[in-house]
Design a protein around this nucleic acid. Sequence first.
DNA 1: TTGAAAGCGCTAACAT
DNA 2: ATGTTAGCGCTTTCAA
Lengths: 336, 336
Amino acid sequence: MAKAGIKDIAARAGVSIATVSHALRNPSRVSEATRLKVLAAAEAVGYTPNNLAVSLRTARSRNIVAIIPDVADSYNSGIIKAIEKVAHSRGYSVLLGDTQGSPEREREFAAMTRSRQADGIILMSHRIPFDLEGKRVSADDLPPLVNGCEFTGCDAFPSVSIDDVQAAMDATRHLIDYGHRRIAAITGDMQSTSSRDRAAGYRRALEEAGLEFDESLVVYGEYSVQCGEQAAEKLLLQKARPTAIFCFSDEIALGCMYTLRQYGFSVPDDISVMGFDDIPFAKYLAPPLTTIAQPVEDIGRTCATLLLDLIDGKKPETMRQFLPHRLVVRKSTRPL
Amino acid sequence: MAKAGIKDIAARAGVSIATVSHALRNPSRVSEATRLKVLAAAEAVGYTPNNLAVSLRTARSRNIVAIIPDVADSYNSGIIKAIEKVAHSRGYSVLLGDTQGSPEREREFAAMTRSRQADGIILMSHRIPFDLEGKRVSADDLPPLVNGCEFTGCDAFPSVSIDDVQAAMDATRHLIDYGHRRIAAITGDMQSTSSRDRAAGYRRALEEAGLEFDESLVVYGEYSVQCGEQAAEKLLLQKARPTAIFCFSDEIALGCMYTLRQYGFSVPDDISVMGFDDIPFAKYLAPPLTTIAQPVEDIGRTCATLLLDLIDGKKPETMRQFLPHRLVVRKSTRPL
DNA sequence: TTGAAAGCGCTAACAT
DNA sequence: ATGTTAGCGCTTTCAA
């Protein structure tokens, strides 16, 4: 006996395949007696539905694809974990779309909705992964998509993230409140909206405090430890060194602190370092990292919930959803 | 125009659907002229194959499922990233099976091969996620599965990991070579083979060095920062404290070092700490962590390659594959 | 309450 | 080289 299907059940239970199908999906439409008979037969033949067939027939794969720059990034992996959790609880599976930042791969993964392998997309990128131009943009042949952490700029899709501008302002202000005046910044990829917004917030907080924005104090990088490592060197090479460095991610901060230590600088005694994200490791670092906590779990959960609702035809109430961040002051920053 | 299928192409190109199918999949079976005609028509109608239909027909989903305890764990996420990479390069997608250690979820995800949503399984657990007993174990109705990092004990499935016993011996020996005699250990979940093997290696290295195994020096935990945090306290409470602590994962080591610091102990001056895994953060910690480097990328790649080959009907050469680990001495351990 | 039958969109014999 | 046709395993009208 190779592969038991509903027709095997039907044969064994002495009913039609239609009845089997009903008994399994729509119990109320068959008599109690047949239902039991069918269930017993299903059990007996060791039935497992072929979900490919179900999906083809119902035009629903019950998969979503999460398009994410890098699963191995601590911040990202937290988000995706939360996504998987709610997807699973609602009977969906998540297809992993690790793009390593490649626009081409973003498009490939996004195409999975066209090819019916996925019913929707959670996009953690600032790029729209398909042509809106080419064809008519009849809003309803766009796939269900929710934009997480980043923002494509297209309001046809709901997006969820923190208010990066405000968060960066809070971070910068914390440093200013601590008496710092020469506050450097190490950014993420400036293509990304998150990084642009943080840069804007940084700048604005400076201005509001009457501090001059000094271009030589910002190093444009990307969200990675290696970047922080190198960027810190550039900062250290300056004649007038910063007394504080605002890193646009905790990973950057980690690399930054490493370099500082290499050259004999103490954090926070010589230089204060501020991170962003509050990855799980942040509080365990030496010194524990002052940072902006993102509600990672909440972001992931909200993205997934929104998407699944979208798939079910429910329109979101707010298209642009901002979740609350929080300044977490630990030991990597100190009053001047 | 809603959904272009091969029959739309056929109509437009003035050929049969079979010819379209051939032109698309099997170009050599069709004349150059028709091939071009078909391609043009496909382009014109904006064709994207319905992979659900293809999969149903060919009985191949081109998905694999990665069953993993926790995507947010740095070690795990490295593995899964490598898996995704090779899967993608071979035209497969990976379904994320984050189990949070739950055997039930392991089984749920494993069932995806039965329901045809996945063609194979990469299992990072020591438990077999389905009944081998119940039915006849006719080896060929087992799904393609490769066991990564852990070992179920079933040699019907290929497995790939490092030699945990040897690696733990190397780690312990390093501490012994440094003159340590009271060497504590903080283990992972002792249900897991990796942790049992490491415990065995630890013990064996002790014995070979003529050191007595002291049960009070081992704290049984799990692979998490929180665990390391708490376990370290237990160790510190002992009358005769260890001079070195061998943590069975870097995350444990991180938590352990944190607690040590809390209580004013310096690593490595007062106590040496050794990790395991060499997660990307390890070298950036303060102090940089001495650890056993696992070939994460290689493990992931090998798992995926093996599985995909298995799916293609190629039998693996070795059922139990050990990849080389490496002792990485940094600054968290020091000679006594 | 149950069943017959028509597909979902595609592939793969088998014919032509 | 191209076309006909029979399904893959299931859901879902529609009729009985």
